[in-house]
Simulated scan of single mutants.
Amino acid sequence: MFDLTLIGIGTGNPDHVTIQGAQAIRDADLILIPRKGENKADLAGLREEIITAVTETPPQIGYFDIPKRRADDGYLRGVDEWHDAIALRWQEAISAHPGAHRIALLIWGDPSLYDSSLRIAARLDPQPKTRVIPGITALQALTAAHAIPINDLGAPYVVTTGRRIRDEGWPESASKVAVMLDGECSFQTLEMADYDIWWGAYVGMKEEILIKGSLPDVAQQILETRAKARADHGWIMDIYLLQKRTVL
């Protein structure tokens, strides 16, 4: 039996790690770090830098490779099978360190917002005692970077994915919509003249890029900037907030 701690580490800035998170890193016997291919090697490197920054004697590190997700049999089924495969990789990495009883993973952003680590942890056998250390989310980092509140007075906002914007359109009753996990820039499927956008890539990191404005005015700039950034770094993490204009 082992304990599992999921530690939110923010959006790539080591200063995002909380005092509680730093202590949990120091307390761990083993930290699991995913490898996502050569183009994303700096994501593993950032985790290693955080561990080195907050520990005098770093714990053991167990690396595991992220399996590829199937996309040929429906989105939800593909994700479900992918989570099964990742849980197996976790089990294998943990089994390779039989003396480790306090296991930790450093989770990008926060383990509770648009992250699947808790669902993957629920697949482990035997079930560990799981603890979550909250972290700064990409959404928090985005609104802070643009110095804006996410909510309007008395109005709801929605956090969703690009896929749902593309397939379902603007959520009814929402005045603002935060869009995550959108590799296709699905804002292009909306009536762009009706919206303003606050976009950011690598928010919180030294590579941070921010663009804001009327959606039809800046959409092409976002598309071009995003494509160049992805080519330059080999990967991209971006998020955006849309606001529907009030018709007077």
Rank of each mutant, 00 (worst) to 15 (best):
K244L: 13
L88E: 13
I33Q: 04
D27T: 09
W198A: 08
R245Y: 06
P14L: 07
K228T: 14
I66Y: 03
D29N: 14
T246F: 14
V158E: 06
S112Y: 01
N39I: 07
K129E: 14
E56Y: 04
E168Q: 14
E48K: 12
L32M: 11
G213F: 04
R164H: 10
D84M: 06
A121V: 04
P171L: 06
A121I: 04
K212F: 03
D73N: 14
K244C: 09
I94E: 01
I136N: 03
R89H: 11
Y63F: 15
L76G: 02
I209D: 01
A100V: 10
A44C: 13
M205C: 13
S173A: 14
M192G: 11
G74E: 06
L105G: 03
A141C: 07
S175R: 15
A28G: 09
I66M: 15
I133K: 00
H146P: 01
A87R: 01
I50P: 00
Y157A: 13
P67Q: 14
A144T: 11
L6T: 05
A145G: 04
I66K: 07
P14D: 07
G74I: 01
S116F: 09
G162D: 11
A104M: 02
P59M: 11
K36W: 07
A93Y: 04
R230G: 12
A155E: 15
R230E: 15
M1C: 07
G74Y: 05
Q20Y: 01
T18R: 00
I19M: 13
E81N: 13
D217P: 00
M180Y: 09
K176Y: 03
D152M: 13
P216F: 05
T52N: 12
I236A: 14
G21M: 00
D65K: 13
H146R: 04
R245S: 08
A138I: 06
L118C: 10
T137P: 02
